[in-house]
Structures are given as structure tokens and as C-alpha cells.
Amino acid sequence: MKTHVITGGTDGIGRALAHHYLGRGHEVVVVGRNAEKGRAWLDAARQRGAAGRAHFVRADLSLMAETAAALESVRSSFGKVDTLVLCARHFRTTRLVTAEGFENTFAHFYLSRFLLSHGLADLLEAAARPVVLNVAGPGGRARIHWEDLQLAREYDGQRALAQGGRLNDLLGVDFADRRPDTAVRYVLLGPGTVGTSFSGEYTADTTAQIEAIRRSARSVQEALTPIVKVLDDPPTAPLSAFAQGEPLSPHGPGFTVEEARRLHRHTQKLLAAAGFV
């Protein structure tokens, strides 16, 4: 029986994946911050006679303490993880600093994925065909603000997400670079514009734009097909990237090992200063 850990698994693509693999008889761990949605996930599993294979870990992934607690919950409950799906995402129009001192989008969209990717690496190695699927939109051209990664001077919600996509590309490069002989396949995937919940806090103008986008977006079920294909039949390369099912090269200017190592060092310093490594 496979074990899938899915962040953002109470909404959108994450929820669809969770139900898909639960229906196939697999073990599914959903990580999310909304306890009510977590109970709804567990109730739905009970109604399908799959209560023993459905799990919910409540965690606000913008907080590293809660991310670390979720990580330990998985580690204490399972001997292996076949797939780690990183789907959680939340848009903020205005800049917010968490109680731990990190900018919210940077923490939620990048730091939590860093901790979970590296923190579950050994459990992934214990699986037969392990995959990390990082849903973040690879291959973007956004600028990385190396001297201001948390955008204290130039915050904009779209800029924060776009930079986060670049940081996750480098996270994938870093993961593969540190494990040259790993069996884990790290996959960076952009599903395109999909009609999910668009979790976030928006201005009135932005809300209107989101509604217009939602009307023309692909359905979650349509987006699911290429994702399931990658998870069921992982690529042979340690690192790969896809945009709406089409392969992208995970090499070149946006995927340099030098920048990935630089980001890893910077991330380690930030987390160590806050007491999380």
C-alpha cells in the first residue's frame, strides 16, 4: 500500500488527489490549517469505508513550528512515504510578518516546502518509487531579490508568488544536487490556471479579477490527469519539470546549481537563527 502526504489537501488539486488515491486503496495524509475542512475530509473517507487509511494533520504552514510538528507527526506514524505532494498556497495582497518573524508568503510557499522536502527525504528513500511533486509553476522569469528575499522593501502579492516559484525551482535543484544517488524523483509542476478555491486575501479589485480568471480556468479534474500520470509513472531523471503536462528543461539560467546552493545556505541561516534547524 502506498502512502501519500499532500499539503493543501483540503481544497482544489490537493483534495482531488487525496480522494483519487484514497479511492485506489492507498494511505493518504492530508495537511491543512482548516480543522473543519479536515473533519470533512475524514467524514468523507468514513462514508467510503476508508477511515483507517485517511489521516489529517492540522498545521498552518506559514509557521515553521507547525510545519515542524506536522513533519514529526508524519515521521512518527509512517515508515515510508511514497509521494510528497506540495500543493498548499495562499495569496496575500498586503505584506504580513508571522509571529516567527518571516514574511507570510515566503514562509508558506517556500520555507515550509524546504522543511518538508528535506525532512521527509529518508522516508521517501524507504519507498519503492518515491516522488516529490512540487506544484509551484516552474520556469518563471521573475527576479529573485537576493538582498531582500522577504520583500520588506518591494512587497507585492504577485511578486511574492512569482519569486516563490523561482525559489521552489531552486529547491528542486538543491534537493537533487545534495542526493546524487537518490531514488527520489523531484518533480516541479505547473498545472496552469485551474478553478480551485484561489485561497487568499484580496482587495475588491483583485477579487473581481480572480472571479474572471476562475470562469475561464481549467477544471480540477482536467488538471489532475497529467499529475496522476507523473505520480504513477515517475520520470527517470532525479529532477524534472512540467507545465500543463508538457516537459520543461530543469537546466539553464533559472535552475543553476550555484544559485540553488546559495539559496540553501541562506535558508539554513534563516531557519537556524529562528531555532528550526
Rank of each mutant, 00 (worst) to 15 (best):
F114G: 00
G23R: 08
V74H: 07
F102Q: 06
F109G: 01
L133M: 15
A16M: 06
G139C: 12
G52Y: 04
G23K: 06
S62L: 00
G49H: 12
R53E: 10
R129A: 13
L116R: 07
F91P: 00
A128S: 14
M64K: 00
S117F: 01
V30M: 06
W41R: 04
A51D: 10
V31Q: 00
K37R: 15
K80V: 10
A50V: 07
F106T: 02
Y110L: 10
R33Q: 11
E36P: 04
A136E: 09
D82P: 05
L123N: 02
S62W: 00
A69L: 05
L86N: 14
A70P: 10
R129F: 06
W146R: 13
T94C: 13
R89V: 15
A51E: 15
T67G: 04
A51Q: 13
F102T: 04
R46N: 07
V81C: 09
T105A: 10
A69I: 03
E72F: 03
W41C: 06
F102G: 04
G38C: 11
G52R: 14
N104T: 14
R129I: 00
P130F: 02
A121F: 10
G38K: 06
E103T: 03
A35L: 11
L42K: 09
H145M: 09
T94S: 13
S112D: 05
V97Q: 14
N134Q: 10
A51Y: 02
V30R: 02
